[in-house]
Each structure stands twice: as C-alpha cells, then as structure tokens.
Design a protein around this nucleic acid. Structure first.
Length: 103
DNA sequence: ACTTTGACGGCGT
DNA sequence: TACGCCGCCAAAG
C-alpha cells in the first residue's frame, strides 16, 4: 500500500461527516488538504466504488443547494436520505445555518 | 502534449 | 433572492 490517493482522502473526509449534518464540496476539499478543489470533490464522489458506505448525500453546495437537478433520481435519493437523518430540505435546499458540519 | 470537463465558489448586477 | 460570469485546477479524452 502506498500514499492514499486524493480521491481516497476525499472519501475519508466525507466519511467523517456525522449523521444529521452536511458539509459543502469546498469544505470537504479544504479538509482533505486540496485547497480550492471543490469541483474535484464532486468528480471523486462520482467515482465511488459500488458497495461503499460513504455518506455522499451529506455533501451539498456552499449555498445549501442539492447539486443534482431537481427531479433526477440522484436528487430524490439525496433528499430522502437527508430527511431520514432529520435534515430539513425545502425546495432542494438545506439550511447551512442549521445543519452545516462544524468540526 | 493540448483541450475540455466538471455532483463548485464567490462576487457583481 | 435570483441569475450570470469568471476563476480554479486535476483528471479525462
């Protein structure tokens, strides 16, 4: 085994987000030591291997918006899982004020 | 080696 | 509050 890849670091950080809270792509990038690589976080989550247990749905935009287009399957899944943990989602958005993860 | 892409962010209008 | 524009930068093609 060698050094963890950047993608693995990202997954590692996402796995730390506790149930009932959310984090932005930018916040995850920063915590993974990737600076302003918010966009890379999205790409990395898209590559999650099947069978994983990474809470990808706890990652949203800094604005509180769900990153997928409303109505898409991924969007519906994300909203469902968030509500399941007690996170309120109204019109595709979460109140960062109330649910953002603060390490 | 070069160009395009992307589950973003921040600021201005 | 809601768009649009531009900046970011590693990975894909």
């Amino acid at each position: 085994m060698s050094e963890p890849t950047k993608e693995q670091k990202i997954w590692q950080v996402v796995a730390l987000i506790p149930p009932g809270s959310v984090a932005s792509y930018g916040q995850v990038a920063d915590m993974a030591g990737l600076g302003r690589q918010a966009r890379f976080v999205g790409r990395a989550l898209g590559k999650l291997p099947s069978g994983h247990s990474i809470p990808w749905y706890r990652v949203i935009r800094s604005s509180g918006q769900i990153a997928f287009p409303q109505g898409s399957e991924a969007y519906e899944t994300q909203v469902f899982r968030l509500r399941e943990e007690g996170v309120e989602v109204l019109n595709g958005r979460v109140s960062m004020k109330r649910f953002q993860w603060r390490p």
